[in-house]
Design a protein around this nucleic acid. Sequence first.
DNA 1: GCCAACGTTGGC
DNA 2: GCCAACGTTGGC
Length: 157
Amino acid sequence: MAGCWLLKTEPDSFGFADLLAAPEQKTLWDGVRNFQARNFLREMAPGDEVLIYHSSVQPPGVVGTAQVVQACVPDPTQFDPQSPYFDAKATRRAPRWDAVGIQAVRGLPRPVSLAELRGEPELQGLPLLRRGNRLSVMPVSEGEFRVIVRLGGLEEV
DNA sequence: GCCAACGTTGGC
DNA sequence: GCCAACGTTGGC
């Protein structure tokens, strides 16, 4: 059974539209700099399903789906002094951060706002809805995944 | 712009 | 190893 995940991003830096515009609609999901989130990245496997969530926009919410196409590799941005994600403590021999390859599947006909997610009884267990949650990578159950894409206007995924 | 919540850092 | 200070996230 494929895992399901939610990836949070600020569309001002990289949003679902950017993923759709990328070559083969694929990208390396890099720049994650939180250990708990990184550990979830390490659990992600090709074929896993992904919800893309836009934060710091009005309204915040889930806007599309993607799939994992490449298991985690060392995040190249940690070695790049020009990158905002550069980490002086990381070495090639001992990388600290990972990234996964994802590919767009499809945009939701109707984005599902954070307010809608909060209003859905079946989603009360979502880590995203926990007060003070700041994780940018988090697991979602298969049931929760289905509820969300259905709210977004997709009957089948 | 505010502020709650949380992670990280660094002094001890 | 504790914990206060600080920085960041992200909704509102």
